[in-house]
Structures are given as C-alpha cells and as structure tokens.
Amino acid sequence: MSILVNKDTRLLVQGITGNEGLFHTQQMVAYGTNVVAGVTPGKGGEWVMDGKVPVFDSVKLAAEATGANASVIFVPARFAADAIFEAADAGLDLIVCITEGVPVSDMMRVRAYIDQIDTRLLGPNCPGLLTPGEAKVGIIPGNIAIPGNVGAVSRSGTLTYEVLYALKQKGMGASTCVGIGGDPVNGTNFIDVLAMFEDDPATDKVVMLGEIGGTDEEKAAEFIATKMTKPVAAFIAGQTAPPGKQMGHAGAIIQSGSGAAADKIKALEEAGVRVAKHPEELPDLLS
C-alpha cells in the first residue's frame, strides 16, 4: 500500500515532447511507472520512447484512448494553468504539476476551481511523488529511496532527496514520498497528505519537511495534535533566513511577522512532533 500513486497508476505526461518532459518520461518508465500516453498540442499521432508511448493533441483524447487516470505536467509556466484546467476537465483523479514559476494569480484561479471538483492537484513547483518499488511521478531520483514504512511529505526538492537518502543509508524505506511544492498557493497542503498517511496501512510513521513562509506547518501541527496517532518527525528549513526576502521558493518568505521558522518549530513541538536540529538527525528521531 501507499498513497496517491502505485503500480496501478496509469500516467499521462503533459508536455511529453519537450526536453524536460521527454527526459523525465524516460526516467519514469525506467523506474517501472506505467506511462500510457503523452500530450503535446499539435503533435497528436506521433510516438515517443521508441514507439511505446503515443502522443495526443489533448488530455481528453489521451484519457479516452488509454484510460489514463493521472497526469504529470512539464509545460512552461505560461501554459501551466491551462494544462491543469485541461487535465481537471478531462476528469483525471490526480494532477501533478512540476512546473516552476507559475504566476500566483493563475494559481488562485486554479485552486478556486479545483476545490469545487473531485480532482487532486499536487504542486506546482514540486518534485512530484515516489512510491518506492512501484511508481515515480515527477522528478524525484528513483535510486535514493527503498520501500518501507515511512511516509514523507515536503515543500522542498533536494532537501527531500537528502532525507530519503539518509533514511536509505540506515536501511529505512518510504511508503510514499510526496513533494507538495514551494509556491505560496498550491493544490495540496501538509494536512491533506498527513491525513492520507494516517489512513494508509503501509505507513507507520511520518517525516515532514517544512520551511519558512505561510502557516501551513502551524496548521499541520494542530492536525497532528488532534487527528493523528502515528508518530511524526519534522525539520523546518530557514531558521537563519532574514525577514522580507524570498528564499528561492516563491512561498519561502517571512512577511508581516508571519512564517518564521521558530514559530513553526514551537507549534510542532507543542503538538508532540520531534523536530530535528538538522536533517541528519531525522533517521534517529524516526527509529
């Protein structure tokens, strides 16, 4: 078991003929992910991956022909909102948007729409998901994690890889690793993923990687205290970040006295979460 993606996921790739899209399709297929189709408007009828994956002009056509139930988006930022709306209107269950730099005004419209329907959006500006041994959707390197019972959820990319790798070094594996992305407005928040891990029989404990900006970690702390039985360990990046400066991720900014690392750490510790001083402590906190 796992959450969101597994060996039954039938994935389509939006932007499959672009450099990024094609490269990561190769990586996903090599990992064993069932990539059933690609979409690039204007290139319908072509094939990629040595004639194994058909390309369609639209998500609707691709989903009808192949039974795809999830999409991963690699299109440029200016087309990302349109790509998300297209996948949502084609009725897919899961949309994972890897694209970085999507205007926040676009994401507010996307989120207002997605909240009204039964589609789950992950990202944008995220590394995607990995269920070790079953499927990888996005750009998380497959070889850094092994199957196991730790659920991982993170706002960051390489920091997540770092932690998965540190767990692997100690022989610990992941049920599913979920990157929710570093933008201020995204599709899925910490508490959504924590709730799924709480319900997942394959997940026994959870590691959560937060960072400065917003109050999602504080909300997660409240959720953990009131709704979770499984142990959670966490790390919050950005304790030395100055206020008012955007630290790489669009959402990583301390504004008007809100979003500082110290507040998040305090809230999590009060909720019984073991908070690591640095990420290399996490495997010990989880064992």
Partner: peptide, 10 residues
Amino acid sequence: GAGLAMTTMD
C-alpha cells in the same frame, strides 16, 4: 535547491 540551501545556512 532552495530548501537544501536554507538548510545549509542553518
């Protein structure tokens, strides 16, 4: 990576 960069500072 931005998250790892902040972590490194920390």
